[in-house]
Amino acid sequence: MSLIQTIRNRDWRGAALPIGLLAVWYIVTAFEWVNTKLVVPPEKVVQVAYNYVTHASFIGDVIASLTRDLSGFVLGGVAGILLGVALGLSRWFERIVGPSFNTLKQISLFAWLPLISTWLGTGDSAKILFISLSAFYPVALNTFDGVRGISKAQIEVARVYGFTRWQMVTRLILPAASPQILTGLHLGLIYAWVATIGAEFLLIRSGSGLGNTVIQGRDAFNVELIVFGMLVIGFVGAFFNHIASRIEARLLAWRGDQA
């Protein structure tokens, strides 16, 4: 299909709302119908964005946040898969640990932050622990669901072909539960990003990060910076979401289009 056709076939009605809003934003600020200190003009946001993007410290902030986010995600994800598999495999483990896990899961995530920051300080270790906790719950929960849902028929096949314990895990349990594990990891990735920004907002006085910068913008009443920071945070989140969906679709190609 040619580019022109692609463009023509696309449903452009979805663009009307953002373009309209942008236009309204531009007009109300250009004619100063509103307090432009509060509702900053879009071109000023662009200007600030340009200043920051070309500024090494901002790039550093973004990298710091991303590193934190991904370290926490990996830690929490691995721990979640391990716990989920263990809960799904062993009835007794599930009976002993399951109730505690289900109770702790109901404690709103941010409630842990004051405790964690008292114990570990406000540095990276506290933040990473908090982020990994946020990724941990959805991964563990979904992994457990996936492992529990493995059909008896498939287990019988594995027994007929003499699978060892290790083969049971790597060739049956993990692949069979992979749709749910990936769902959990996808959710975990989203939560980890929320937790990263949240932790940086709340533990503002230590370290650098996207969240710190944005919150400092609020203290300095730098609305352009806040708007820009918010957009960056949003697009990083959307980007993660997009990547996760792509990876999921790739890895689960064997399911056909039932997904």
Binding site: G88, L89, S90, E94, K152, R165, M168
Partner: peptide, 8 residues
């Protein structure tokens, strides 16, 4: 009836 995974 999905039991816990059979474990050798």
């Amino acid at each position: 009836t999905r039991p816990a995974v059979y474990w050798p």
